[in-house]
Design a protein around this nucleic acid. Structure first.
Lengths: 158, 158
DNA sequence: CATATTTCAGCGCAACTGAAATAA
DNA sequence: CTTATTTCAGTTCCGCTGAAATAT
């Protein structure tokens, strides 16, 4: 007795999200070890694969982190020859990213691992329940996140 | 055209969770700046407040991180005089944690900030919807997490 | 001997800010 | 002159492992 949990005081929602993200992160580390990718590197490789016209600055905006932070990840992936960059025809300052053949193969292997991870993590969820969960996550992300839509580079826009 | 998003390919659930956690983390940093606490320090202070008999090792188990990692946070909070530790009567190796008066005041101030943060972040959720969201988070955490229950120290247990 | 807590030392990952060069 | 991209340099936060001393 004497514990607030015992008296019914609930954990914060932010805290539950932090715990779940931490748990998933740790599982990702294990699953990605064989491919020698960090969880963030996988996410960026996956993001980059969805559009071969994106630059580091685009990715940073979509991930909501500083361009300097994203640059480190992109540089690591380039060093591993999983992505390549070349000057944009529209703007000589912009370097557009595409996956190499090795990058595509690595991403495919990792995607299989991640599919297995998600099946395991949400094993107790029905398809309907998982859909509702995902809808609520997107609702919480709100309009503030442009992760799910596509907008061009400000440098080229207009 | 040509974007998988446009063709209806959905973002991974792990990715949505990562984005939401990142967004909440950034908001926490801002809200906690005035109290000079990091998000992790606030969470640990909050956890510690819920039971004045917990040790660093207990907190590490409940947060699912290594005791060495938790020790750093606890040391920081002790350095700021927000918590104090004293030898357990049961076991001279265990240091049990309690909040100082300053720790209690700081926690209360931060809790108000976090209440405002959560109201803002889940502004579009009805009470029922938020309850369902929290239930699904806890379901995903599953039995693997003992965050929500209370169990004694292995060193004292039995 | 085995197990548990604490602590020191070092490391890696993933974010940040500041500042500068390049380009439109 | 202003804005945007890239890049270099340094920092902080927060997790890890290894190893050791203390205690039961």
């Amino acid at each position: 007795m004497g514990d607030r949990e015992m008296r019914g005081e609930a954990a914060r929602t932010t805290f539950l999200i932090r715990l779940l993200q931490l748990e998933l992160y740790n599982q990702m580390v294990e699953r990605l070890r064989g491919s020698e990718l960090t969880p963030l590197q996988f996410l960026v490789l996956s993001l980059a694969s969805r559009h071969d016209q994106w630059s580091t600055a685009d990715l940073a905006r979509r991930f909501h982190i500083a361009p300097q932070s994203m640059n480190e990840v992109v540089a690591a992936l380039e060093g591993k020859k999983l992505i390549a960059r070349r000057v944009s025809p529209d703007h000589r300052r912009i370097l557009r990213i595409r996956l190499t053949a090795a990058g595509t193969r690595t991403l495919e292997r990792c995607n299989h691992e991640m599919d297995a991870l998600e099946r395991s993590a949400f094993h107790d969820f029905s398809a309907k329940e998982l859909g509702a969960f995902r809808a609520m996550l997107m609702k919480a992300l709100g309009q503030g996140s442009d992760m799910l839509s596509v907008s061009p580079s400000p440098a080229v826009r207009g």
